[in-house]
Write a protein that binds this DNA or RNA. Structure first.
Lengths: 195, 195
DNA sequence: CATAAACAAACAAACGCTCGTTTGTTTATA
DNA sequence: TATAAACAAACGAGCGTTTGTTTGTTTATG
């Protein structure tokens, strides 16, 4: 997923390579445990060369975070556009979230793996990026027909927690796919409506 | 929560102080970002002194993990013992989990914050400790009366994900308590039975 | 009952290494 | 030939850990 659009110098490829390597390592090892030397080695550069593109390690994380949010938002918007029924839209959104998180994107995994508090300085920026994405879910849950008294905030956070935590146990090639998982999650909540 | 029982030399207090400090710092900053010097300072020791009690930083993490699992298991067992209805037992178990995680214990938070993969060598031991705890939930979910075809494994993982993720957004003093949250989580799933 | 040996538990200081980052220089591209 | 993008080498700080020593507190002994 290329990041940029206008003119395409060769350097864009290298920047993307750096970001890809950083995203992968941040997702697997976490932020603190990943060194600039790790990242440099993963994209065949010397450590110092990274600083031509990014002023600091924190800036690299922010860039990865931003790309992750963009991917999640884009994939989810595209998915829910196909559906009109509120429950179907929620399920489609969850499926897109899981597809992105579990199969496609190291970037999205960084959102789940690395906490804003891990970076002293840019924490606020990271929190804002997360909040931006979670707003999409607020809308989806807001559109549901639910028994009066249902706490939609808790429903949203419960679902988001289940989705994000799945990163830590989901096994590619197991009995479930991201789609089937989303279906099950939403069904477990949906029956509420019929009570 | 004191750990020891038999004879009480003064050193037990210091070991506990070290563990408490480590648990707090691991919970807040994560494993890699926490230094032995941080821990030493937090319990008024010099860095080298820690090595009289623990051979390596990893061993400290394992000890904290073990204490965390013990607390979660103990609190949960005590809570579900009071109930007999399967759904009430599940709710009580969730409430105990949340009470421990959100209010009582830095140790329990480490289980959620630090991944087994963060420690190269002791990863297997940490995974086993986590699994030991999650087994309790398997039993609780197994006892539920559910519509045929319900995937109990996914139900369990969904609930566990919601519970654990709550650590990242729960605000002490907000509208919800750990108990009320557990009630809402379980209720959102429970209505399934009535469908 | 005094005292010395033994030990637990800490200090003080440093080890070698790796961290994020900087600086000056070289190499390709346009 | 100007500039973007990399290299090469090093900086100081901080890392986990080790080592040798000191300090109190038990425990055994004359």
């Amino acid at each position: 997923m290329p990041v940029k659009a206008l003119k395409s110098t060769r350097s864009d490829n290298r920047v993307t390579a750096v970001l890809d390597a950083a995203a992968r390592l941040f997702a697997v090892k976490g932020y603190s445990a990943t060194t600039m030397r790790d990242i440099a080695e993963a994209c065949d550069m010397l450590p110092g060369s990274l600083y031509y593109h990014f002023a600091a390690k924190e800036d690299l994380l922010v860039a990865v975070y931003e790309a992750g949010v963009r991917q999640l938002v884009d994939n989810m918007r595209a998915a829910i556009r196909e559906e009109s029924d509120p429950w179907a839209r929620l399920e489609a959104g969850c499926a897109a979230h899981l597809e992105t998180l579990l199969r496609q994107s190291d970037y999205a995994q960084v959102l789940v793996r690395v906490l804003p508090a891990d970076v002293g300085h840019a924490a606020a920026r990271l929190k804002a990026l997360r909040a931006e994405y979670e707003r999409s879910f607020r809308d989806l849950v807001g559109a549901l027909l639910l028994p009066p008294g249902t706490d939609r905030g808790v429903l949203r956070l419960m679902l988001l927690g289940a989705l994000n935590w799945s990163r830590f146990w989901f096994a590619e090639g197991g009995r479930d796919t991201p789609r089937s998982l989303a279906r099950k999650f939403v069904h477990l909540l949906r029956e509420t409506q019929h009570a």
